[in-house]
Amino acid sequence: MAETTIIERYQARRTRRFLAHSEKWGRMLPGWRSRRRRRALVLALGATFVFMLGVGVLCHFFDRAPILWLPACLLFFPIWTSLQIVSGRLGDAPTTTLDEWEVQQQNAARSAGLTITQFLVMIPVFYLIVGSVLADGDGARIAYAGGLLTLTTLMIGGCSPAMILAWTRPDPDPEDHAEEAA
């Protein structure tokens, strides 16, 4: 028997966990698996990110603005969880569970997600650099606002592969649902 590396053991464990979660969650929200509904979830998630960015900007100007982060999170988590369920978590699925076409789509979406992340994170980084130079006693506000903006842009980049795949994938094959129901 060949000795496995820690990476191979990790990938095997990750695959087992993914398949177990797919079995558990794969039948939930069947009415939301259409392209139209997935796109509605992507748009809702996008609106949530705009709200989060707005909270980050407001934190620069108002002391009580961070309170708005709680409603933003209360919006984000159920929408993100629903999107992950209805899209089958293809954005972060182990490649051993995907066919060649799905691997190509996943790689393209991940590449776009990395580009989005790199571009968007530069905005709060420049804000923090310039703001720290120009700050005149407002360092705490700048740090908090910059932190929320950075966190939000990282979340956008991290969620974008799943959002891209949910937006672009065709409707599920009706025959697949007929087999599951039988």
Rank of each mutant, 00 (worst) to 15 (best):
S132G: 13
G147F: 14
T117K: 07
R35M: 02
G56F: 05
L165G: 04
R141W: 06
R16E: 15
T15K: 12
R37D: 02
T150Q: 05
S132F: 14
D136E: 14
H60Y: 12
L74E: 10
W25I: 12
V57R: 03
R110I: 14
E175P: 04
C73A: 13
T168W: 00
L19N: 11
T117L: 08
A178S: 09
T115A: 13
F18T: 02
R64T: 15
L43P: 08
H21L: 15
L74Q: 06
D176Q: 05
M155L: 15
P161W: 08
D173G: 05
E102Q: 14
T81G: 03
I6Y: 09
V121F: 02
I164D: 02
P78N: 02
F76L: 11
G54N: 06
R37S: 03
G88R: 03
R39A: 08
E175S: 13
L68Q: 02
V133T: 08
R17E: 15
R64N: 14
A143E: 13
E179N: 10
T15V: 13
G88N: 05
W69Y: 11
T48V: 09
L120S: 09
Y10F: 15
W80V: 00
A40T: 13
D173F: 08
D138I: 10
T168V: 09
L148Y: 07
W167A: 03
V133A: 04
R89E: 15
L58N: 04
Q118E: 14
A181I: 14
F126P: 07
S82I: 00
R9E: 15
P172N: 04
Q106H: 09
R27I: 14
F51E: 03
F62D: 14
H21E: 15
R38I: 01
E102N: 07
G56P: 03
P170A: 12
L19Y: 07
L114P: 00
D92V: 05
I116M: 11
G158V: 12
T95H: 04
G113H: 04
V130D: 05
F76H: 08
I7T: 08
G88H: 01
R36K: 09
I116F: 06
G158I: 09
W101H: 10
A2M: 13
D63V: 11
D63N: 11
P124D: 02
G137A: 04
W25C: 08
